[in-house]
Design a protein around this nucleic acid. Structure first.
Length: 588
RNA sequence: GGCCUCAUAGUUAAAUGGAUAGAACGAGGGUUUCCGAAGCCCUAAAUCCAGGUUCGAUUCCUGGUGAGGCCA
């Protein structure tokens, strides 16, 4: 980092010295050199030809010459077309790696809230939830590593007509079965009745259609639908029997979710329940009307006109005084800020809600909430199956619990095939299969840019070879086995080394990017950056491993350097996998 | 109908406007008397189409095509 600043300043001097033109050092850009060319940093001269009034090659050569005179750490430079490639000395890199500290990057960066997961309590979680769970958890970890105080929040959608559907179906056809009597996990049991409702409801519609009723009317007036809506009214009125049923079934689901979260390894500091927050936001509507931000239509409904901002008119309260989603979300946003005063608030929610959040944040801003600027929608793409979008009512979903089990099973089979677990206890082995299976799943999902849609083929299990979680974990285990065989002193004592092999130099350079990459991931809220960086390190290390010896090296100075470099690699991988919510196996 | 995303080898997927588009899986070939072969090395294979801006476009702009989504 510092060397770059120094070079930029020196380039700025060069312009003054050589061409008599002032060039602000802050405006000068340095890029990392394309791996195909020798060098570490590259200065592109094309944009500066007007200042130098020379050809690209000549400009690059002039500046390269000046830098070589004035920058001690610069070993050499070369010019290809208009690209000035700067090669830093080996000593520079040796110093960098020796004093390279891997730790939390800043202190007291501020407070940030990360909301993620946010499931409905009428069915078990599926592949799509896995993506938000992993993304939210990982982004929170990345921000924690960069020095933020993070509060992770889950907003559970535990009320509404969809919840009543499961309740009604259970009441009608459940014969009182419970998770305990059926042996079925609570969220799956409730989900079963949600599907059951839908099946029977469709049958009713077919009957009505056969009787000559129009489709829309049939969907609206099917007896089961009317009954579910009646149940919602009873719930809203606080009817005792309905509340008891609701409470019981929700508790089943919560217990099931807890198990899923535990298996997946995600956590929350705070749960908000929509049953507590769904009435919030009405006072904000009142406030908006008084401030003239909202307006009332003749029928009594309340709207905001966002056409000047390139959006539409948006309904914020219905004519009958009931809320819409955005009303609740306004209220909940206010509540979250009151509770935690976070200057940043990240919502990890699917990209189908892009418009919703654009509107939400804009309204908050127009209402004068200064913290609205810190609100950010981390929008992620849907997870598609080869058959198209997942629809839980149609049963075309990949269940989260089943998928995790499947991954663990695959990891078990693969590990047993390789037969490297001799001497491990059963408990240790099971833990390892979990580490590897979940590691593969997490890495698979997190290495993709969050905003991109991703395709998941359930018939092809996730790879354990190539650019995968287990590949990075394998590298960690490999280093661990080297370090186990090393003497403790070798890992701490000072060393004297003056030359490096090319593969070693590459590894050192990659390790030195730690700070840069983590800050980039934090600013983009992208675990994919961390995953790509972890892969880069693992590859660089494996190349070194293939190229040189660690334990068989007889030159004691080289041996110390190599072992300590391995240790730094291991620490770095550990921190990166932490940020992805993955564990590091000592053996595998 | 209005608006928003996305489009890269057979598949999955990288590239702050920079150099010969970088990988992985799959395919083909090689590699283990020697620190862990879930590794390493080699080969074949890609920027949806047409314009524009630029010294330079996968990247930015316009139009089209295709996929997905949101709002009524």
């Amino acid at each position: 980092m510092q060397i770059e600043e120094f070079i930029k300043t020196t380039i700025s001097e060069a312009f003054t010295e050589l061409y008599g033109v002032s060039q602000d050092a802050g405006m000068i850009k340095l890029e990392s050199t394309n791996p195909d060319f020798p060098g570490d940093l590259t200065f592109v001269t094309f944009p500066y030809l007007k200042s130098s009034k020379k050809s690209p090659e000549q400009t690059a050569a002039d500046i390269g010459g000046y830098l070589k005179e004035n920058v001690e750490q610069l070993k050499d430079f070369n010019v290809v077309k208009g690209f000035l490639n700067l090669e830093l000395s080996e000593q520079y890199w040796l110093d960098r790696i020796q004093f390279h500290q891997i730790s939390i990057l800043k202190k007291n960066a501020g407070r940030v809230m990360v909301e993620y997961s946010s499931p409905n309590t009428n069915k078990p979680q599926h592949l799509g939830h896995i993506r938000t769970n992993l993304l939210g958890y990982s982004v929170a970890e990345i921000l924690r590593y960069t020095g933020y105080e993070v509060t992770r929040v889950n907003l559970l959608n535990d009320r509404g007509v969809h919840i009543c559907k499961s309740m009604l179906a259970w009441k009608k056809w459940g014969h009182g079965e419970t998770p305990a009597t059926s042996g079925v996990k609570g969220d799956h049991l409730v989900g079963k009745y949600y599907v059951e409702f839908d099946k029977r409801y469709k049958e009713e519609i077919s009957t009505l259609l056969a009787g000559g009723m129009e489709k829309e009317k049939a969907e609206r007036e099917a007896p089961l639908m009317l009954e579910a809506q009646d149940m919602l009214r009873k719930w809203e009125a606080g009817d005792e029997a309905t509340m008891l049923l609701w409470k019981m079934m929700n508790d089943w689901v919560f217990a099931g979710f807890e198990q899923t979260y535990k298996q997946l390894g995600v956590e929350f500091e705070q749960m908000y329940l929509e049953s507590n927050t769904y009435l919030l936001g009405k006072d904000i509507v009142e406030e908006g009307l008084q401030k003239g931000v909202f307006f009332k239509k003749p029928d009594g409904s309340v709207w905001i006109d966002l056409t000047a901002d390139g959006l539409d008119e948006k309904l914020v309260m219905r004519a009958d005084g009931t809320s819409v989603y955005i009303t609740q979300d306004l209220g909940t946003a206010e509540l979250k800020y009151k509770d935690y005063q976070c200057e940043k608030s990240i919502y990890v929610v699917g990209n189908e809600q892009d418009y919703h959040f654009k509107v939400l944040f804009l309204i908050l801003k127009k209402l004068g909430r200064k913290w609205a600027d810190g609100c950010y929608h981390l929008s992620y793409g849907m997870v598609d199956l080869p058959s198209g979008r997942m629809k839980s009512r149609e049963g075309t979903v990949v269940d989260a619990d089943e998928l995790m089990e499947e991954m663990i099973k695959t990891a078990r089979e693969k590990t047993e095939d390789l037969g490297k677990t001799e001497g491990m206890g059963d408990h240790e082995k099971e833990h390892l299969y979990h580490t590897l299976g979940l590691g593969a799943l997490k890495f698979f999902m997190l290495k993709v840019d969050p905003q991109k849609r991703m395709l998941f083929d359930p018939t092809e299990s996730i790879d354990l070879q190539g650019d995968t979680g287990p590949f990075v974990q394998y590298t960690f285990a490999r280093i661990s086995s080297i370090l186990r065989a090393a003497e403790p002193a070798e890992l701490h004592d000072a060393y004297v080394v003056d030359t490096l092999k090319e593969s070693e130099q590459d590894l050192v350079k990659v390790l030195c990017d730690f700070e840069k990459e983590v800050l980039k991931a934090a600013s983009l809220y992208s675990p994919a950056v961390i995953a790509a960086y972890a892969l880069q390190i693992a590859k660089a290390f494996n190349r070194v491993y293939n190229d040189i010896s660690f334990l068989k090296e007889t030159d004691i100075e080289k041996r110390k350097f190599r072992l300590q470099m391995a240790q730094k690699t291991s620490h770095t991988i550990h921190m990166l996998l932490d940020m992805l919510g993955m564990e590091c196996p000592e053996r595998m």
